[in-house]
């Protein structure tokens, strides 16, 4: 996808116990005396080191290049006079009085005699779906992580953990198809909604995609709380639930926050599920029962058709920049939270 970030990686929260340095371990020989083969190895080592270094920097380079490319394609929106006649930032963000409409409105109708590019319906749609997905996924993801790390016995843990992680492997098109064909009818019947495909269906389907993200990171965070904390708490006379609520949860807080932030980034950028299950109508409303059109789905649905370098093309890339910036921010926030937790636990353990 054009704007998707790399999927959130499983960050290793657990710091390996510092092992005693063994003199016999060849890894520790870097600054020590070289073994006998030294005459042949350095050249190979140096080469390998360069290769690994290049690989490590290539993903950073890729991100920068992607951002530069998207930015370059979106840039004409801000200064090009030809595009400015059709669409400007002001026209995108403020309600316009269009001919044939009764009142000033935010309208997304890019293929029309007078193309209309209001961004609010798409942004609000994205936030609406994301909010619903988070409302479902956060309690489920964090709750099951807490259960698995604190309450579940070993056997139960070995069933639940791989199962939830398996969910991460389900392709989003399959989740979307399931939502489109099965879940939509079911939710409509149960709640008596006017329209089958709506923000609620898309949000719930989306939550399946982000539960594993939140679960995995949170579970590692809970597991990373040093046992000495629990022992200290128990020694002071705290009950098990008191230890969990007062000690473990606060200590793992930043790690859980990181999981939520990574899940948020995934939810905002996820395309296929919302494209299939949301109905794709750019309605500006707060109701979860209305169909929505998200930013990512709009880009996916419309980019193939637009005139290269035209106003519509530029607007889609501008939306891509917004999406990219948002997911980048949430991912950085997540990394920051993980770092903070590692420092906090590392300093005290």
């Amino acid at each position: 996808m054009l704007v998707g970030l790399a999927p959130p990686t499983r960050s290793a929260l657990v710091r390996p116990e510092p092992r005693p340095v063994e003199a016999s371990d060849p890894k520790n020989h870097r600054h020590a005396e070289r073994p006998r083969l030294a005459s042949r190895r350095p050249k190979f080592h140096a080469l390998a080191e360069v290769a690994i270094r290049v690989l490590a920097f290539s993903s950073i380079a890729a991100i920068i290049l992607i951002f530069v490319f998207i930015g370059k394609e979106a840039w004409p929106l801000l200064h090009d006079s030809v595009i400015g006649k059709e669409v400007t930032l002001a026209k995108m963000w403020f309600a316009q009085q269009w001919p044939g409409y009764d009142a000033p409105e935010h309208v997304w109708q890019p293929v029309s005699e007078i193309p209309k590019y209001a961004a609010w319906p798409l942004v609000v749609g994205t936030l609406k779906v994301t909010l619903i997905a988070m409302l479902v996924a956060v309690p489920l993801g964090v709750g099951s992580a807490l259960f698995v790390s604190q309450y579940a016995g070993r056997r139960l843990r070995e069933i639940i953990k791989p199962t939830v992680e398996l969910l991460a492997g389900v392709p989003s098109v399959v989740l979307g198809f399931f939502a489109l064909m099965v879940m939509a009818s079911w939710i409509q019947q149960v709640l008596g909604l006017d329209s089958r495909l709506n923000a609620l269906v898309a949000g719930v389907a989306l939550s399946f995609a982000i539960i594993p993200v939140i679960f995995t990171v949170s579970e590692e965070a809970f597991g990373a709380v040093p046992h000495s904390y629990v022992e200290a708490s128990t020694a002071l006379g705290a009950a098990r639930w008191q230890t969990i609520v007062r000690v473990i949860v606060p200590a793992a807080g930043p790690g859980v926050a990181a999981g939520i932030a990574l899940g948020l980034g995934r939810a905002v950028g996820e395309t296929m599920i919302v494209l299939m299950a949301s109905g794709n109508a750019a309605i500006l409303s707060a109701s979860p029962a209305d169909s929505v059109r998200t930013v990512s789905a709009t880009i996916a649905a419309e980019l193939a058709e637009v005139v290269f370098g035209g106003p519509h093309y530029t607007v889609l890339f501008f939306l891509g920049v917004l999406l990219f910036a948002f997911t980048l921010a949430t991912n950085l926030l997540g990394e920051f939270a993980i770092g903070r937790m590692r420092r906090r636990l590392g300093g005290m353990a």
Binding site: V107, Q109, P121, N280, A281, A282, I283, A301
Partner: peptide
Amino acid sequence: KNADYTVRAQSMP
């Protein structure tokens, strides 16, 4: 007659 579709119209692929 070239009027806009209602915003409530859901777009199918």
